[in-house]
Design a protein around this nucleic acid. Structure first.
Length: 205
DNA sequence: TGTCGAAGTAGGAGCCCGCA
DNA sequence: TGCGGGCTCCTACTTCGACA
C-alpha cells in the first residue's frame, strides 16, 4: 500500500475525490500492471496506454467518478471519467481524464479539452529493488485542471507525400504547470537525467 | 564548458466507424 | 466485407537553456 507520508493533502482535487481514493487506485494500478509487465517489453507505448486504462478502471471502482456508459465514448472520447450524476455531457469541472506516462513531466493528447487530468507516472522495476512485491511502481500522481489555453497545437508532417504521426496537443511548460500538483510523490524516487530513478542505486530498466 | 533538466518534434500501433 | 480516415494511447530523439 502506498505510504501515507508520500501524499500531499494540500493539492486541489476534482470535486468529490479524496486522497484515500487515490491511494486505493494506486495500489490497484500497481498490482494489476505488475501482472502485465511482459507487455512493456513488447511495446512500451502500449503499456503506457494500459496504465491509463487501469487508472480509469481504478477510479471507476474506488471513487465517485465513473466510466462513460456509452462504450464508444468511453473508449475514444473525452473524458475517460465523469462525476456520477453529472449527466451525459459533464462540465469540465466534472470531467476527469486518466493518463499513464513514463516521462516525468510531459502531457500530450490529440485534443485540448478543458477539464481535470490525473497522470499516473510509472516506472518498471523488474529487479523489484524499490518494492519487493511489485515490478511496476507508480512514483508520482499529478492531478491538475487544464484550460484550453494550457494546450499548444503540435502539427503533423504527415500528408500525401508521406509522414507518420498524427497531430497532437501538448501542455506548455508542463514542469511549471505541474509544480505543486503532485498529490502523490514517492520520496525514494528522484528524477535524474530526465528519468525517475531510486534514490539509492542506479536504476536501469 | 560540461552536465542535466525541460521542451519541442517526430514516429508507431490499435480500434472504431463510415462508405464503397 | 474490406479499406481508409479519424481517433486513441504513448515513446524516442534532438535541441535548448540554466547552472555549477
Amino acid at each position: 500500500m502506498p505510504r501515507k507520508q508520500d501524499f500531499d493533502p494540500s493539492v486541489a482535487l476534482p470535486p468529490g475525490l479524496d486522497v484515500a481514493q487515490i491511494r486505493k487506485a494506486i495500489e490497484y494500478v500497481e498490482r494489476e500492471a505488475s501482472d502485465l509487465v511482459e507487455i512493456y517489453f513488447e511495446q512500451a507505448n502500449v503499456f503506457s496506454a494500459i496504465i491509463g486504462i487501469l487508472g480509469t478502471k481504478a477510479m471507476d471502482q474506488v471513487s465517485c467518478y465513473e466510466k462513460h456508459r456509452n462504450i464508444d465514448t468511453a473508449q475514444q472520447r473525452f473524458p475517460d471519467l465523469k462525476r456520477r450524476g453529472s449527466g451525459a455531457n459533464p462540465t469540465p469541472n466534472n470531467s476527469l481524464e486518466s493518463k499513464g506516462s513514463k516521462r516525468p513531466w510531459a502531457i500530450q493528447s490529440h485534443y485540448d479539452h478543458p477539464g481535470w487530468y490525473i497522470v499516473w507516472r510509472y516506472l518498471v522495476d523488474t529487479t523489484k529493488m524499490i518494492q519487493s512485491d511489485k515490478s511496476v511502481i507508480i512514483w508520482r500522481v499529478d492531478v491538475v485542471f487544464l484550460e484550453r489555453g494550457d494546450w499548444k497545437y503540435e502539427g503533423s508532417g504527415a500528408g500525401v507525400h508521406g509522414g507518420g504521426r498524427t497531430h497532437t496537443f501538448g501542455v506548455t511548460n508542463p514542469a511549471k504547470k505541474l509544480n505543486g500538483k503532485a498529490v502523490y510523490a514517492r520520496k525514494d524516487v528522484v528524477i535524474r537525467n530526465s528519468k525517475p530513478v531510486p534514490v539509492n542505486g542506479d536504476h536501469d530498466e
